[in-house]
Design a protein around this nucleic acid. Sequence first.
DNA 1: AAACGACCCAACCGCACCTAA
DNA 2: TTTAGGTGCGGTTGGGTCGTT
Length: 351
Amino acid sequence: MGRAPCCDKANVKKGPWSPEEDAKLKAYIEEHGTGGNWIALPQKIGLKRCGKSCRLRWLNYLRPNIKHGGFSEQEDQIICSLYISIGSRWSIIAAQLPGRTDNDIKNYWNTRLKKKLLGKRRDSPPSRRLSINQDTNEETNRISPDTSSQALSTSALERMQLHMQLQGLYNPFSFYNNPALWPKFHPLRDKVFPIQQTDANTIAATPVQQASDATMIEPSGQNLLPVKPNMPNPMNAYMHEDLNRSTLGFPSPSSSRTLSMDNSNPNFNAAAVGLQDELHDLLYGKNECFGRQEEQQQTALDCFKDMNGDKESMNWWATNGFDDKSLAGTWDFASNLQPDLLQEYGLGYDL
DNA sequence: AAACGACCCAACCGCACCTAA
DNA sequence: TTTAGGTGCGGTTGGGTCGTT
């Protein structure tokens, strides 16, 4: 049994708002406010609209100081960096951009920024996920692009790709550039990096790692994980109190209302500068890198595919002590990537 | 000029959370 | 403690617009 609808669907108007409706709503709210009850508002005004529709219209269009279109480069970078950090939490992202609405940012991301950053998806040809034999419903259904797992994977995949682009481009010691950091079950790890595995349970500091400025943490007392101290997560300073309920240092969806950030804080701005510089390069420059970068991405994809359904490998991240608390406060690709993100990633590629 | 497809964005939908009774 | 109504959020949809053939 579902919950009762918020309004009488049969007697409410839907679709685009007329100028008259806009004027009525705007005039009433400017004079009386919302009265703390959106559901009752349309009746008071005499609008045949759902209260939720009124709220949306006001917040996204009629409210004063709303900006539409014309996103600046700085806004682009803020959106991208926050998307990478926290995903599609549009209301939080919008809170950092005065005059912008979550809906506007969401649309802008989906229609412009995503394409700008990720380019045309190379993994989208139907042959990759659809059956070769289109005549057999069985195979088609099994790996249809419309499966729920793939629907759930979209955001995770995008964030993973962006992580790869940033880390692959600019961090020579990143997870994907450093096979020594790969999970012990990774089938290619020993082939690519045979002499570095000194202990079955512990990935010890390798020459590569020693050469880096990475510090190590011990989330479970067994496994060491690199942390890149000079690549701070701009979100950390303001999400710290939220971390106990978060996954991998990012707030859980349920905590969205307790999260607050203040971009006037110098710590936030300083931390964001490095990442935003790199994002700027991705958005507006260094395009010559994309060819090599795509190769790196493909290599990473191949690595995941080569696991070939080894759930143990995928679960490695989630079961080796990399829980939410232990990973809080890190800003490395490997350590920031959520276990469920990796699992989703696996699902998305039919591992 | 017409047809078609891609793109954009306003608006809707359903779910989860919050809160008051 | 439970429940119901209100609110906020993110995902999705549908129609208008634009560009290409």
